[in-house]
Write a protein that binds this DNA or RNA. Structure first.
Length: 202
DNA sequence: CTTTCGATAGTCT
DNA sequence: GACTATCGAAAGG
């Protein structure tokens, strides 16, 4: 079975089903690799926290397409990347929130240093979705990339982690649908970001 | 460790 | 003009 089929099969379920499956897998881009330690699930039109909730726009178009594509958006001057899963028409995304840099540490540190004056501990290089994309050099121009058909290993699937190593809780910074525990992380991993409640509007 | 607050820029109303 | 699926610095425990 080709890797392409493996990935396509692995991403076939609903967002909360697939999300923990990505923990421990490795995301490669531009000479840096990150082992995923934290993921959030954003489900289709029924999830009021999802960008897709209010329908298709120019920004979220990729989420409405086939699974295995990368959905990249920008906000607050940072980029966040999602892996699209499920079937076309049910726009679901998996936000990659944090990871451990396992290759290209010097380059990752260089990219981070451009936006920070103080020293960065190694386990914090890819802690937080904006920091992770900065380490990897992912920008809005990577939106729509098909991870299944890329010649290099974009997303290197690893065997699923034992359930005992996985924790879950509410999503970070999300003001709606607070009751669902759709953030998943590897228990005890230092690269996992700390929980932040949504800031009250106004 | 925690909380709070301002900066930030792209998207949508 | 108002909103964020954010970040880092600063201040407090």
């Amino acid at each position: 079975m080709s890797r392409q089929e493996d990935l396509d099969t692995a991403l076939a379920g609903t967002a909360p089903q697939v999300a923990p499956r990505l923990l421990g897998s490795v995301l490669h881009h531009d000479h840096v690799a990150v082992r995923i330690t934290e993921v959030e699930a954003y489900a289709g039109p029924d999830d009021p926290a999802s960008h897709a909730w209010r329908g298709e726009t120019a920004r979220n178009r990729t989420m409405f397409g086939p699974r295995g594509h990368l959905y990249v958006y920008s906000m607050h001057g940072h980029h966040c990347c999602n892996v699209v899963c499920a079937d076309p028409g049910t726009p679901t995304g998996l936000l990659i929130r944090a990871g451990e840099v396992v290759a290209g540490v010097d380059l990752a540190r260089e990219r981070r240093a451009a936006h920070r004056r103080t020293a960065i501990p190694e386990h914090q290089l890819a802690r937080g979705p904006g920091n992770l994309t900065r380490c990897l050099g992912i920008t809005r121009s990577d939106d729509g990339t098909d991870l299944r058909n890329h010649c290099g290993p974009w997303l290197e699937l690893r065997p699923p982690l034992p359930l005992a190593e996985v924790r879950s809780g509410p999503r970070v910074g999300v003001p709606r649908a607070v009751d669902v525990a759709w953030r998943f992380w590897i228990a005890g991993d230092p690269s996992v970001s700390s929980f932040r409640p949504a800031r009250s509007s106004r």
